[in-house]
Amino acid sequence: MAKTILAVDDSGSLRQMVVFSLRAAGYQVTEAVDGQDGLEKAKNAVFDLVLTDQNMPRMDGLTLIRSLRNLPTYQKVPILMLTTESSDEMKSKGRAAGANGWLVKPFDPQRLTEVVKKVIG
């Protein structure tokens, strides 16, 4: 059975690239348009991995991670940030919030799938 991934990003074109890359590698991907949408979808199904952007309307990535980590079902689910933000300060905040990794945009599809494979197989 294919591993499931929740891809959260307010940019439709970026989500399209993530979905294209991960589906080609055999993963089942669900899209969410921002942190709030991501949280609602995460409450309805437990994904094997969450990949989220940081700067989004309604709810940003760090808030989403903190909210997910408060859910019993998401305490150990890997969460990766995929964002344009690249400062050490933001990475530290991500780590403190509960992120398991930080990927800076733009991403290379092959490297993205390699990382995802390393994290969830």
């Binding site: 940081q54 690249s86 991500g94 992120a99 990794g101 930080w102 990927l103 733009p106 991403f107």
Partner: peptide, 16 residues
């Protein structure tokens, strides 16, 4: 300012 990229090469990856 969230975008500091000045080129289109792929970004860094760090696993915690």
């Amino acid at each position: 300012k969230a975008v500091c990229q000045t080129g289109m090469e792929s970004g860094d990856i760090e696993l915690f």
